[in-house]
Write a protein that binds this DNA or RNA. Structure first.
Length: 898
DNA sequence: GCAAGGTC
């Protein structure tokens, strides 16, 4: 019997030929320069020809009556006749199949084992039946190109899965219809009004728009962010060393277990409690081994994410380079969802190939000499390809190719190494009734870190403490901080969001990002070494406009695509038919389309507002009349839209208001300051409280949203730890962002009815021009807005990194020019450190300025804060009977031991 | 000139 085997791509055809033939085969060229036919006799004595296609063979398109952009009302594209044909560039492949099929009894499909593979398989069958209608069809099922699996697939073939193929057909037709309908409608309508948009189509697609939506959504969060002030207790101890010792004393910082509070009064009351009895007592000292896990085997998405972050290349470029390295035989197939290696994977021969490298060769050798440990198993397996790994050693690469190859190789070797091991010490202390902790880390074995410099793990020394030991902290301060605005989306963030939300596949995610850049919906902006994605005026205008229409399921959010995906799964499971799914989905999108077209004024005015910089004009007169279905004379335009303006192409430049001069697809206003860290030294992302913004940019006071604009979810810590049982709020979008908030840390709205003032009460005598207050006893930093300055730390790489400075507490837009280094100036102690003596001499209530009572018992304000009771404040020996009261501006740092 | 999904 003669068997014709057809793989999805030439490389697979070659690989399976090598395995099945045992290396004994003949090669015939075809009229396609990539496709070869391999002939041999298999062990079953059947003669085999192995060939391939190159992805899909067939393409859908509207038939000629509907192909021209002005040939029909875009609405009709939801029903227009669709034809399927072999595109010109695939004709040579078709010809080869027709010719090979003619002389064969069995057709065996060797495409990838996924939905697309089943669909491509059906396409191959369709073509082969042209010349051999009765050909017997089988499907070889394999998940890795290893001899055992390939022989098994050849000897135990199965049937093609028509349901999976149908699911792909349904999606293909749906995407064509809705993509073309929306693209023509919005392009024709907007281009008629805005000449500067006529250069290229204003495309809509069910993947590209949600991708744009992620970028715009983050942009809106950044714009809507307003910083919130919080307070926390900072405790530290400077160790004493014998005078004979050459060691320097060190500062041990203790972190407040409450983290931070957003209510000043509550913070102050708690702080008062601490300084009343500031003796810290060590409640426990625990030491335990800890690990930093080695990375997981590499998938395409992970390569693009980490590559974009670490190698500073676009996901598209990384994928293109990987593809090239794969074709040269240096890498395994770079499009894979699999993060687990097959049990029979031959690690050692691959490690052997790397031992000659000048940089990581020694490490590879150490893996051979007993250092090897099986890679971790991830949870994903596409059953088609292994994780990305180097297949050969190559030393003569340069530039970006070298970077990509090196990353993949180091990652592979890291996977084959051991986790890094360390020893973690945690010292828990109580001070007053509050709990604090400090941790230290000693790295014992670096292991994989030696070959994987992309991961950092830094040890931290902590002096020895004993349980029960008591000490007086050197510093006990109530510090103020501010939440920092979230940063714009990076490409790595976007890849992650798309992956999590099912937008695109591993092979297409990078393309969708490139599409929204090519369409000028989004521009890349470099801040330091990080590339951020910022929506253009057009991008914001489109998303904002559609959001204003207020669809139940937004065109710029992932829900609709997820529904399509769900319906595809239903087809695969046999729960619905291709036609039924298409009917449902087309109906759904047709309704969305009609509404979008009827209310397209919203999009037009939103785009106009952003392009021409006009102020929001909600009162813009509605366009002419309701939609008229008979209006087919000008089918591209929403019939109810305003007539095209007669503006010249640069008309928007005269639009005034924005002053952006160039018009066209300019990026949105400049970004805020680069992401900063606050006094905790925690990246701002984790400290940012989410701005509560709905899809239309309006505040929603009732719902807490995460950074993806999705309602947060409440969870409980289940892992064995100090926080077990503790509740927290997290991203409601399957981990799409890093939003995190403890629920037991009260927010200003839930703890006290007193509104925390943004400007605190202050001393009557202040300096107006920024700097310190004029109070002799109590230096207080004041900015030029006459607000209490905040202390921040430089995090940007440079000679000032780690240096503290004082700045205006306002958000960037409102911030004054006040700036002062924390370690300069004569009067300025780094913070307002008060001696205990001083505490006793300043006796005004911070709220009313009068003596004789404490702020939390102030009779001159609301009583809500009285629930904390009178507390001694600033003295560890005296109670509130002293009757001292303090000004707020002096309340930040009250305690300092000599 | 439209989509998304394969692959070159």
């Amino acid at each position: 019997m003669h068997v014709l085997c057809v793989a999805e791509k030439p490389s697979i055809a070659k690989s399976i030929t090598q395995i099945l033939s045992g290396g004994q085969f003949n090669i015939r060229t075809t009229s396609n320069k990539f496709i070869k036919n391999y002939d041999f006799t298999y062990r079953t004595h059947d003669t085999y020809t192995v060939t391939s296609v190159a992805g899909h063979l067939l393409a859908f398109d509207f038939n000629s009556a509907f192909r021209g952009w002005n040939s029909c009302d875009p609405l009709t594209l939801f029903d227009a006749a669709v034809e399927v044909k072999v595109p010109e560039d695939k004709k040579s492949i078709e010809k080869n199949l027709v010719s090979e099929a003619r002389r064969t009894q069995m057709l065996m499909i060797w495409t990838d084992c996924d939905r697309e593979g089943e669909n491509i398989g059906m396409e191959i069958v369709q073509i082969c039946r042209k010349s051999n209608p009765n050909i017997n069809v089988k499907r070889a099922k394999f998940s890795a190109i290893i001899p055992q699996q390939i022989h098994n697939a050849a000897q135990h073939p199965v049937e093609l899965d028509k349901a999976q193929a149908d699911a792909v057909d349904a999606r293909t037709i749906l995407d064509l219809r809705l993509g073309a309908a929306f693209t023509r409608m919005q392009s024709l309508s907007l281009q008629a009004r805005f000449g500067q948009l006529s250069q290229q189509p204003i495309s809509y697609g069910p993947c590209q728009f949600p991708t744009l939506g992620f970028v715009v959504s983050r942009y809106e969060q950044v714009q809507a962010f307003s910083p919130e002030t919080f307070w926390y207790i900072y405790l530290s101890l400077r160790t004493t060393v014998p005078s004979s010792s050459k060691e320097d004393p060190e500062d041990v910082e203790f972190t407040w277990k409450r983290g931070r509070l957003f209510d000043f009064e509550v913070s102050l009351a708690i702080y008062e409690g601490v300084v009343t009895n500031p003796t810290a007592r060590v409640t426990s000292v625990t030491q335990k081994p800890t690990k930093k896990w080695k990375p997981l085997p590499l998938t395409t998405v992970e390569l693009q994410k980490s590559g974009s972050r670490l190698l500073k290349m676009t996901p598209k470029k990384i994928l293109d380079i990987s593809e090239k390295l794969y074709q040269q035989g240096f890498l395994s197939y770079p499009r894979t969802e699999t993060d687990q290696f097959d049990p029979s994977f031959d690690f050692m021969s691959l490690i052997q190939k790397q031992t000659t490298d000048t940089e990581w060769g020694a490490f590879a050798t150490s893996l051979q000499d007993g250092g090897f440990t099986r890679p971790r198993q991830g949870k994903k397996n596409d059953n088609a390809h292994p994780p990305i790994h180097p297949t050969a050693h190559v030393a003569n690469l340069a530039g970006d190719e070298k970077k990509v190859y090196e990353y993949i190789t180091r990652r592979f070797l890291a996977c084959c190494s051991k986790d890094a091991e360390g020893w973690e010490t945690t010292v828990n202390v109580t001070c007053g009734r509050e709990e604090f902790y400090s941790t230290g880390l000693q790295i014992i074995e670096r292991n994989y870190l030696d070959v994987f410099p992309y991961d950092k793990w830094v040890g931290k020394h902590i002096p020895e403490f004993k349980e029960g030991e008591e000490f007086i902290p050197t510093v006990c301060e109530l510090k103020e901080g501010q939440t920092t605005r979230p940063s714009y989306l990076t490409e790595a963030d976007l890849v992650g969001l798309m992956d999590k939300n099912g937008i695109g596949t591993d092979a297409t995610i990078a393309q969708h990002i490139q599409t929204i850049i090519d369409r000028e919906y989004v521009v890349e902006k470099k801040e330091g070494s990080i590339k951020y994605l910022i929506p253009s005026k057009l991008g914001i205008g489109l998303v904002e406009g559609y959001n204003k229409i207020g669809f139940e399921k937004s065109l710029s959010k992932p829900q609709l695509r997820r529904e399509t995906e769900r319906r595809m799964v239903q087809i695969c499971d046999g729960n619905t038919s291709k036609q039924e799914m298409l009917n449902q989905s087309i109906e759904q999108y047709r309704e969305v389309f009609l509404r979008a077209r009827n209310e397209f004024n919203q999009v037009i005015s939103s785009v106009r507002r952003h392009l021409e910089g006009r102020p929001p004009d909600e009162n813009m007169p509605p366009d002419q009349g309701p939609h008229n279905d008979d209006d087919d004379n000008n089918p591209g335009n929403p019939p109810n839209a305003q007539p095209p303006t007669n503006k010249p192409p640069d008309g928007n430049r005269r639009g005034g208001g924005g002053g952006n001069g160039g018009g066209g697809r300019k990026p949105a206003p400049p970004p805020p300051e680069p992401n900063s860290r606050d006094d905790f030294g925690i990246a701002s992302g984790s400290l940012s409280r989410p701005s509560q913004v709905d899809s239309s940019g309006n505040s929603d006071p009732t719902e807490v949203l995460c950074k993806c604009s999705v309602p947060v979810v409440e969870r409980t810590v289940t892992k064995e730890s100090a926080n077990k049982g503790r509740k927290f709020r997290a991203c409601g979008n399957q981990g799409g962002c890093d939003f995190f908030e403890w629920m037991d840390i009260p927010s200003s709205s839930s703890v006290a009815s007193v509104t925390v003032p943004t400007k605190r009460m202050r001393s009557q005598t202040t300096s107006g021009g920024g700097g310190e207050s004029s109070s002799n006893d109590l230096p207080v930093k004041r900015c030029k807005c006459d607000m209490t300055a905040v202390e921040k730390t430089v995090v940007k790489e440079g000679i000032n990194k780690g240096r503290k400075f004082w700045t205006c507490p306002n958000s960037e837009k409102a911030r004054c020019q006040f700036f002062e280094w924390g370690d300069e100036g004569t009067k300025s102690a780094p913070a307002q450190v008060l001696s205990q003596d001083r505490l006793k001499t300043n006796d005004e209530c911070f709220k009313c300025g009068q003596s004789g009572h404490w702020s939390n018992a102030c009779p001159n304000t609301g009583t809500s804060s009285n629930k904390t009771g009178n507390r001694a404040f600033g003295s560890n020996t005296q109670s509130n009977t002293s009757g001292e009261c303090f000004k707020a501006s002096q309340s930040f740092v009250l305690f300092s031991t000599p």
